[in-house]
Design a protein around this nucleic acid. Structure first.
Lengths: 217, 217
DNA sequence: GAGACGAGTGAACGAACGTTAAGCTACTCG
DNA sequence: CGAGTAGCTTAACGTTCGTTCACTCGTCTC
């Protein structure tokens, strides 16, 4: 965010903490582990942050900001069509989980380590994110293009599926990012019983259309 | 399992440890928390288990056994039809996640606390569970009744969705268990592009058929 | 060239952690 | 009736934890 010329140790600490939190969990990670991984001394951490918890909060905050940033950007390009808006949110979420899997794992698993106040604020942001899916789905149902009888369960499935991407996606694996996003959008459409507004031909599953997240081509 | 007349403290410790592990995480839970919640002293734990980790292993082991038990029972009733077998696995998984959400949360989130050896054994059992889905899906595709172009992604979505049930389902909520199972099976069919073998009429989404897990009615 | 400040370091503190030792009581078995 | 054992207890042990303190070194400013 305010990242003009951040000192080296700062970013190293954030990266080290992210890596440790993501694969051992917040509680299982000691600040000595973090400092060692960052290549600085134990008390360097306290030069930048008031403590271990603040590191987690910074990671969660930045992660949420980046996620909402991606969603908003995708939604801005999507226009008003509910199907395109849903595709934007699904695409942005799947993409974020894949591209920033370390942050995603922390967002998904470690928020419970926050104290009550911060946790409930975090849960509120989670609800906002859920709301992005819900709004697009509700609008699509109101418009008659999403025909599923189970919009809530479909939404939960879609979100769960996007979130799980963080656990298995490897950027060097066999699934390129664009294919991943397209598939997840297509599968989300399938789940929602997407029917085009003025259909010339009925698609068997759902229309594999643009994701609404590409910046060109 | 070998549970004829288990001493009171034993079960109290398992229940307390499950509750604490599920909502704070293994690493964040101290054995004093567990003992206090179980209403016994700290060292009672060591009377039954060699240590904290053994408690986790016992919970994971029992949880996995119970899960596979439910899957096998459902599969035994399902016969050989891939669609019914898939329904059995989806139904058993969703049901298990809902009925045993505490154990499920530990199974899903806390296995990383195991040491390398036990963890890889655990991951192998997870792969077996994934294999139950994969086998049914592959068979259905070979039989031509599942028509999705993305069977692997559909499988991951289905599994992720079932797993997520543990996070939101409340037995006193508005969704009764049977409805939950039926919906998840239906949505799984939708994702897989299920087409009946000898179709008289094409369903718009997928056929809301029996789940293959009910024992009667 | 003094003084402030940013970017750290090393050593220590008290609390909490997992674990162990030693002992106590109630019951069962021979 | 004596020994053994299941089912605990209280009291500690050594370690690791998050955090703090006092300090250093370089750079930038006035």
């Amino acid at each position: 965010m305010s990242a003009t010329r951040r000192p080296a140790g700062h970013q190293a600490l954030l990266d080290a903490a992210s890596a440790e939190f993501a694969d051992r969990g917040y509680a299982a990670t000691s600040i000595r582990d973090i400092a060692a991984r960052a290549g600085v001394s134990l008390s360097a951490l306290y030069h930048y942050y008031p403590g271990k918890q603040a590191l987690l909060e910074a990671i969660l905050h930045e992660g949420m900001d980046a996620y909402f940033g991606m969603c908003e950007e995708a939604l801005a390009e999507a226009g008003r069509d509910p199907a395109r808006r849903l595709a934007a949110v699904v695409g942005a979420t799947a993409r974020y989980r894949a591209e920033r899997s370390v942050a995603s794992l922390i967002l998904i698993n470690e928020a419970r380590a926050l104290p009550e106040r911060a946790r409930s604020a975090y849960r509120e942001r989670e609800r906002q994110a859920t709301g992005l899916f819900k709004a697009a789905i509700d609008d699509g149902i109101a418009a008659g293009i999403f025909t599923t009888p189970y919009p809530d369960d479909a939404r939960r499935m879609i979100i769960a599926a996007c979130n799980a991407v963080a656990q298995w996606y490897r950027p060097d694996g066999e699934v390129p990012m664009e294919a991943l996003v397209e598939r997840y959008v297509t599968l989300a459409y399938t789940l929602l019983g997407y029917q085009r507004r003025n259909p010339r031909a009925r698609p068997v599953h759902a229309a594999p259309v643009g994701t609404g997240t590409e910046t060109s081509n």
